[in-house]
């Protein structure tokens, strides 16, 4: 009895607060404003207009860029950490994690104060007699904000996989004639793929759906998909169109996730850094 009863409340809870909301979004996305529900594809058709497709393309592009930069910058960092002496490693990893504990908005806000027209960066520039520049409210600022916020999400899973990796595999490769570069290309990197994949999805997902970073570092325009959704719900009040965009975002992320999972399973069965 206890066994059956104990999960009862959560069945009810997850139905009301997880399943029903998704159904509502689906229903909204397939209908137009009006008294009664009427099936319609108008919202999805509307999204196919170039204005919105451009927003989507921009979101994906900037999220992919942020992910690639995080990977390129984060992988060497993860390797350095993994090979550090144990005594310093714990401290170094903690140093990496501490900024993540800081409120996300404060971390983004910090860049506002640095990149601002009257901010510290311009101050440094004028000190050296260089012309002032507008850093804030540009695509570059958004990209920087993303890399800053999400870099540890890339480093940590890769670091975890690398530390778990059996060192004798690397020795075996060297023993069989592989130099450092070949060892990395043929053994270390392929074996760290599960970490890379989970890092990639942990950076790409929040990057593609954010509206805070773009809002604070770019301004209130329709910049990314996240801003578009937010505006539809809170400003324009077109919940039907907003729901349709949310659905598209959700499907896009689910597809990305399943591709990542598939890749991860095909690659290696052991040592996966499953952070989720």
């Amino acid at each position: 009895m206890l066994k059956k009863l104990s999960s009862g409340p959560y069945w009810l809870w997850s139905f009301i607060f997880i399943v029903v909301p998704i159904m509502l979004i689906i229903a909204f996305s397939f209908s137009v404003p009006g008294e009664a529900f009427k099936f319609s594809l108008d919202n999805y058709k509307r999204f196919m207009e170039p204005v919105y497709l451009k927003v989507l393309a921009r979101s994906v592009k900037i999220a992919v860029e942020a992910t690639l930069i995080c990977l390129a910058v984060g992988y060497p960092m993860a390797m350095i950490l993994a090979r550090m002496h144990l005594k310093y490693r714990t401290i170094a990893v903690m140093l990496l994690v501490v900024p993540m504990w800081m409120n996300f908005l404060l971390r983004t806000y910090a860049w506002m104060t640095i990149l601002n027209k009257n901010g510290i960066l311009n101050h440094i520039l004028s000190f050296f007699g260089l012309p002032q520049m507008t850093f804030l409210y540009s695509e570059g600022a958004v990209l920087l904000g993303m890399v800053y916020n999400f870099l540890p999400f890339m480093v940590l899973p890769i670091y975890t996989v690398l530390t778990k990796m059996d060192n004798s595999l690397i020795e075996a490769a060297e023993d069989l004639g592989a130099n450092r570069r070949t060892v990395f290309r043929k053994v270390t990197f392929p074996l760290s793929l599960p970490g890379v994949l989970s890092g990639v999805s942990m950076v790409f997902m929040p990057a593609v759906s954010t509206f805070v970073i773009s809002d604070l570092l770019y301004g209130g325009q329709y910049m990314l998909v996240g801003n578009l959704i937010q505006q539809q719900f809170l400003v324009v009040n077109d919940w039907h169109f907003g729901s349709a965009i949310s659905m598209l975002l959700m499907v896009m992320i689910l597809i990305t996730m399943s591709i990542m999972n598939r890749l991860g399973q095909d690659g290696v069965e052991q040592g996966g850094g499953n952070i989720w």
């Binding site: 999960s7 959560y10 069945w11 997850s14 009301i16 607060f17 997880i18 399943v19 029903v20 909301p21 998704i22 509502l24 979004i25 909204f28 997902m205 929040p206 593609v208 759906s209 954010t210 509206f211 996240g226 959704i229 937010q230 719900f233 919940w239 907003g242 729901s243 949310s246 975002l249 959700m250 992320i253 689910l254 996730m257 989720w276």
Partner: peptide, 24 residues
């Protein structure tokens, strides 16, 4: 079934969870 439902709030972007709850 319940583990799949359970993973929806974890996998879904926060913004989608947010607006869907708001709609609810």
């Amino acid at each position: 079934l319940i583990m799949n439902i359970n993973s929806i709030p974890i996998l879904n972007p926060d913004i989608v969870t947010g607006i869907s709850l708001m709609t609810l």
